[in-house]
């Protein structure tokens, strides 16, 4: 079992995303994260989703995705080198002596403070999912007010492209 990231090029049609999500539910596959937006070609959407499973399971997922009429192409990003990033906002309680400590931790992780109040910081952090996890672990749990993560987006390195 390992975490895998799939990139899916999809017709930008109503209902197309629900077919992708429905497939995962129907076939008992897990979706860990899911991101979707139109590409430079507005008739196409690109989905990045992370899941887990053996090679055999990922192969089945890939085949079933390809079977959907709206799916143009599927790429297993972990098959070759790729770049993956995730965006996270964390609202952290920052008062008194702790305020400086939060700022320091944020600097170490190269986070950006995007909003400030008298009692809290909102930090924006981009990176691989592991780095985001590490940031959360580095904070005092009781100081965390709210976390929102975008889910993974990814692209292959080098010449390899996913296009229609």
């Amino acid at each position: 079992m390992s975490r895998r990231v799939l990139a899916v090029l999809l017709e930008n049609e109503p209902g197309a995303l629900s077919r992708v999500v429905g497939l995962f539910a129907q076939r008992n596959y897990n979706i860990e994260t899911l991101t979707v937006a139109p590409t430079e070609d507005p008739t196409l959407s690109r989905v990045t989703l992370s899941t887990d499973g053996s090679d055999q399971k990922i192969e089945q997922i890939t085949k079933h995705l390809n079977r959907l009429v709206d799916v143009v192409k599927v790429l297993d990003l972990h098959e070759a080198a790729c770049v993956e990033r995730e965006l996270m906002f964390v609202k952290i309680s920052a008062q008194g002596a702790d305020r400086a400590e939060v700022k320091r931790t944020c600097d170490i992780f190269r986070g950006q403070i995007v909003d400030v109040t008298a009692t809290a910081y909102t930090v924006q952090l981009t990176g691989e999912s592991g780095k985001l996890d590490a940031f959360i672990r580095a904070l005092d749990r009781s100081a965390i007010i709210e976390v929102v993560r975008s889910g993974v987006s990814g692209i292959s390195r080098g010449e390899k492209v996913l296009s229609a």
Binding site: P14, G15, S18, R19, G22, V69, D70
Partner: peptide, 16 residues
Amino acid sequence: MVGVSRPVVKHSFLVR
């Protein structure tokens, strides 16, 4: 209908 039938069709359309 598109939703109810989704897991048991090869494909479906809602005409707009």
